[in-house]
Write a protein that binds this DNA or RNA. Structure first.
Lengths: 132, 132
DNA sequence: AGTATTTATTTAGCTAGGTAAATAAATAAG
DNA sequence: CTTATTTATTTACCTAGCTAAATAAATACT
């Protein structure tokens, strides 16, 4: 395996594991957090808006949203267009999200903090420059 | 989500999907390829050697090896220490792997080819420099 | 020698991604 | 207006990672 691929996959797995570790205190998984944060920032969204924004396939979002609904983090309501479901944060989510957001953003900042601002930009540029 | 995290996770998912796409012609999945290539380079290995080398947990490897065994790519034999299982490439695998390896290494090289040699080194350095 | 601990592998069950195909509503075509 | 196509969501099922706990062999302790 090409060392770049290898290093990238390793780091990616490592970081999701760390993120999950930190999220444990809030009884959340990384993918759940990603969706909640997305709704927190953009307000109510349809399923399609969510999966297009997060750049994953629709079934992954359907499943995650069902779970979040069961756990009381979000509500799913029919839209004007009756095909679509609009997802909104529950009262509980709205109450808890500010604190969770704070701890997670701090964690993320700490993880990338070993790079200088310039290195961070460089890193994103290199990632974007890679084919695809 | 921190833009670095976001970019890194996206690229990681994107690259595994591409890799799987290319591996389709050989009826293999990326994790299977990773293990086969590992055995191709290092010769027979125990399960523990494999998961420690690839830096994943043991159950993931157990499952993947079972599948590879079913498909006839590897054989599992008891070691001298009767707790351990030694995994070896089958005749079929040995015959096919050189060609597969060639196409995949070429693909990987093409994917990172949009970066200069120097940028590639830089990229790995930055990855390694990130906490963890 | 007999018991306790460690080590290698496996099993069960979870999240998290993917594809392919089903369903149902909206829109376009004739 | 009726039919065909597109679009939004869901269902079923696959790989791929994880943790926790079970099993069985090897090693250490006394």
């Amino acid at each position: 395996m090409n060392p770049i691929f290898h290093a990238l996959f390793q780091k990616s797995r490592y970081l999701t594991n760390c993120l999950n570790e930190v999220l444990k205190q809030h009884q959340l998984y990384s993918s759940q957090w990603t969706i909640l944060y997305c709704l927190h920032k953009h307000g109510s969204m349809t399923l399609t808006q969510i999966w297009k924004y997060l750049n994953v396939e629709a079934p992954s979002i359907t499943r995650a949203i069902s779970r979040l609904e069961d756990l009381g983090w979000v509500e799913r309501v029919e839209g004007e267009d009756k095909r679509e479901k609009i997802v909104t944060l529950s009262a509980m989510a709205k109450e808890r999200l500010p604190i969770i957001t704070k701890t997670i953003l701090a964690f993320e900042a700490e993880m990338v903090g070993s790079l200088t601002e310039e290195e961070q930009l460089q890193f994103i540029n290199l990632l974007q420059k890679m084919k695809g």
